[in-house]
């Protein structure tokens, strides 16, 4: 398994949250561990810009050949953009989950929610247990 990037934050549902480069905006995707468990990703269903989600609300689904999983928004906010290249090339989630395989860009409404997320270290021990 490739490393778990430092500086990102994680959830128990194997999503990550990373700063998007603009104030209050974050990129969300699934971790390398999660893509490995799913196998070949064949389809990612994403919301539309402008949609708003509560923390832990389902914002989309990800499909592998014989598995499907809901995607949970780790934080509350409004969708600024979605990664449209996943429509054409969903396998980016497998090949580059932390980079080109990001899913949604969200404008955070409650910064305190970030405090509830896991650090890279905490996430690493979580997946060690499973």
């Amino acid at each position: 398994m490739s490393g778990i990037p430092e500086g990102f934050q994680y959830t128990e549902e194997h999503e990550y949250v990373r700063e998007a480069g603009a104030e209050g905006e974050f990129l969300i995707g699934i971790t390398d561990y999660a893509q490995g468990e799913l196998g070949d990703v064949v389809f990612v269903e994403l919301p539309s810009p402008g949609d708003a989600f509560e923390k832990m609300e389902v914002f989309g689904t990800i499909e592998a050949v014989k598995a499907v999983s809901d995607l949970y928004s780790p934080i509350s906010g409004e969708i600024v953009a979605v990664n449209e290249t996943l429509d054409e090339d969903p396998a980016l989630v497998n090949s580059d989950p932390y980079g080109e395989g990001w899913m949604i860009r969200i404008r955070l409404t409650d910064p305190s929610e970030l405090d509830d997320l896991l650090t890279a270290e905490a996430y690493a021990s979580l997946i060690d247990e499973s």
Partner: peptide, 12 residues
């Protein structure tokens, strides 16, 4: 496209 089907997606 088996993820549409009951054996995988069950109630959904």
């Amino acid at each position: 496209l088996q993820t549409r089907e009951q054996q995988i997606r069950r109630a959904k």
